[in-house]
Design a protein around this nucleic acid. Structure first.
Lengths: 223, 223
DNA sequence: CGCTTTGTTGAAAAGAGTCAACCCCGGTGG
DNA sequence: CCACCGGGGTTGACTCTTTTCAACAAAGCG
């Protein structure tokens, strides 16, 4: 981990970056020089608080644009790290600004921002007042939904992130996530093997998301 | 509760609004017609998720500008409710837009946005990975800090919000908040009586914020 | 092929939630 | 003036979820 990163380049020119798992795309607090539309792969956004707490604050998939949130800020608000082999475009900040002058593009960008902030709000609610099972169900449905929104009509998800990343994102521990996945599986809602996950019963997952009691950590599993 | 609100007016004209505790300044999802700089009083921002979960997402004090976040959105992202007698200015959305054309004002607005999003991120961290005592300590320090930032050099806070609001904001229950306040008091960190709170040992509170073990719910209090 | 990282599972402990009783205070109306 | 009422707050006992600690299995990588 802790690859050279991209920001080491003296001047940012348009182009492409290729990252391997663990390599850093951009670092929180560093000057925001570019946005990085994701072409392939996946990344996580990590926020580090003033006291040094770290938390995964979002996941980036193809089509997402890490660094775009900072378009009018002097520095990146989060660090972004590749979860797997990843290719991103590099759009210098001036180009972003220029693009945002175009009304159509600006509208699109605002739309992205809105979806993002709504997501953040839902996450806050989830972490603040939902039980572990609900949070995880929500994430799975969300990931599946995003995949669908990108045109992939497949109920099989490839989790690019570790259990630890998921746990951090959801405000849980990795053990809890692991247990919950097992329980979802034995409840017939999903199948999981390592990073490969298939949603078997989407409605059931949605029910779990809505109803805390539906699948708990203890209690009788499905025999 | 559920007063007529301000948005019932057919057209928004510049001016003032006066709200009593419980009255609604603006409602999530309704068209964003104005921003409302707070002159006196205090309000809470409430986000309602798609499944109907509600959570206090922030508090507004004099100097804050509810509705400003929505300056480029079609609708308010949260509902804002007065916690006490409150007076706000009314700045129609067009005026906001016009003002934002001014470079100086825009910089100021961006600054506000940045502080806001940083706050949200810290809140997410807090709720996601800190213990109850840490969260509450954080809130108290934050409130005191805001008060100081507004030039009030007084260690006495007047909590305009109920324990329930605090609990919702921190992702806890009101009982937990109450207990914790009592414990902080018996630990000599604060004095509380109803809505009046004095921070006695700021460094101690900061220590609690940093260290989970410092003040717990059970365990021996200070005799 | 062994080593490290990642994931699973179990048992025990702790933190926070739930349920319920009670207090305090301000307001209202007799 | 006082009794009653109700919202907000406190506190206690108990329950339950989640964390913590720990051992172990599986997979990826040199």
């Amino acid at each position: 981990m802790g690859g050279a990163g991209v920001t080491s380049a003296p001047g940012i020119a348009p182009g492409r970056v290729h990252l391997q798992a663990g390599e850093i795309l951009c670092e929180q607090g560093r000057p925001a020089l570019a946005a990085y539309p994701v072409r392939t792969g996946g990344l996580k956004g990590v926020y580090e608080s003033q006291l040094g707490w770290r938390q995964v604050s979002r996941f980036f998939m193809p089509g997402d644009v890490p660094g775009l949130e900072a378009h009018d800020a002097p520095a990146y608000g989060i660090s972004v790290v590749a979860l797997q082999d990843t290719e991103c475009c590099v759009v210098p900040i001036e180009a972003v600004q220029a693009g945002l002058a175009n009304a159509e593009l600006r509208a699109a960008a605002l739309d992205i921002f809105r979806r993002q902030t709504r997501r953040q709000s839902e996450l806050l609610i989830a972490i603040g007042s939902m039980k572990a099972a609900q949070r995880l169900a929500m994430l799975l449905l969300d990931l599946a939904g995003e995949q669908a929104r990108r045109g992939v009509a497949d109920s099989v998800l490839t989790l690019t992130m570790t259990r630890n990343d998921i746990a951090s994102y959801l405000g849980l521990t990795l053990e809890t996530v692991s247990r919950l996945l097992s329980r979802f599986r034995s409840a017939g809602l999903i199948t999981v093997r390592h990073r490969l996950l298939r949603i078997v019963d989407e409605a059931g997952l949605a029910a779990v998301h809505a109803d805390p009691e539906r699948v708990t950590l203890r209690g009788p599993g499905v025999d």
